[in-house]
C-alpha cells in the first residue's frame, strides 16, 4: 500500500508533460483533524486539504513523468522543492488538476515545473482555475550517490515505482508501464 495522492493520469506526453487529477474527499480521515472544531473557542470544523499534500500530489505527478522517461529504470526521488505558491484553500468536493512540465532532463535527474488548478464543482462554469505553482528537482538515486551515507546496498528492485504507480498508469489507459 502506498500513499497515493493522485487518482488518475489524464494526459501523458513522454518526457514532456503529465497531467493528473485528484478528487478531494471528506472520506480522507486527516481532513477531520485539519481542522477539527474547537468547541471551547467556538470554532466550527474546517476541513482544508493540507498544502503539503498538494506538494506531494505535484511531486507524484512530476515523479511519474521523470520515471516514465527512463522506462522506470531509476529510483526517482524528490530532491528539492523550489518555489511553491498556493493562492487558495482546497476544500472537500473540489477536483485538483496537477500539470507537470519537464524543463530539463539529464543523467543525474530532472527539473520539473508544476501547476495546480482547482475545479470548484459549486462554480463549475468557471472551470479549472489555476491556484498554484511549484519548481521541483528530481534526482536519480543510485548506490554511488548514497555511498558513505550509511545507505549502501539499495534494494535491487525499483522501490519508488512499485505496483501502485504502474496500476495507476495502466488504469488510466496508458498501457503497461
Amino acid at each position: 500500500m502506498r500513499w497515493m495522492w493522485i487518482d488518475r493520469v489524464i494526459e501523458l506526453v513522454p518526457r514532456t508533460r503529465l497531467v493528473a487529477i485528484k478528487n478531494v474527499s471528506l472520506a480522507e480521515e486527516h481532513l477531520h483533524d485539519h481542522f477539527a472544531a474547537d468547541i471551547g473557542r467556538g470554532l466550527p470544523a474546517t476541513p482544508v486539504m493540507p498544502a503539503s499534500l498538494v506538494v506531494e500530489g505535484l511531486a507524484q505527478t512530476g515523479g511519474i513523468l521523470v520515471g516514465h522517461a527512463s522506462g522506470f529504470a531509476y529510483n526517482v526521488v524528490l530532491a528539492k522543492v523550489g518555489k511553491f505558491e498556493l493562492t487558495r484553500d482546497v476544500f472537500p468536493g473540489a477536483t485538483l488538476r496537477y500539470t507537470a512540465t519537464a524543463e530539463r532532463f539529464d543523467d543525474a535527474g530532472a527539473s520539473i515545473r508544476g501547476e495546480v488548478a482547482m475545479l470548484d464543482h459549486a462554480r463549475a462554469a468557471e472551470g479549472f482555475v489555476t491556484i498554484g505553482s511549484i519548481e521541483l528537482i528530481f534526482s536519480h538515486l543510485n548506490n554511488s550517490m548514497v555511498a558513505g551515507a550509511g545507505l549502501e546496498n539499495l534494494p535491487a528492485h525499483n522501490f519508488v515505482f512499485g505496483e501502485s504507480f504502474k496500476s495507476l498508469l495502466r488504469n488510466s489507459g496508458f498501457g503497461e508501464a
Binding site: A79, K80, G82, E103, R104, A108, G109, S111, I137, S139
Partner: peptide, 13 residues
C-alpha cells in the same frame, strides 16, 4: 549537493 544540479539547470535557462 542537490542545489548544484539546480544551479546548472538554471544557468542553462
Amino acid at each position: 549537493s542537490i542545489d548544484f544540479l539546480d544551479i546548472v539547470f538554471k544557468l542553462e535557462q
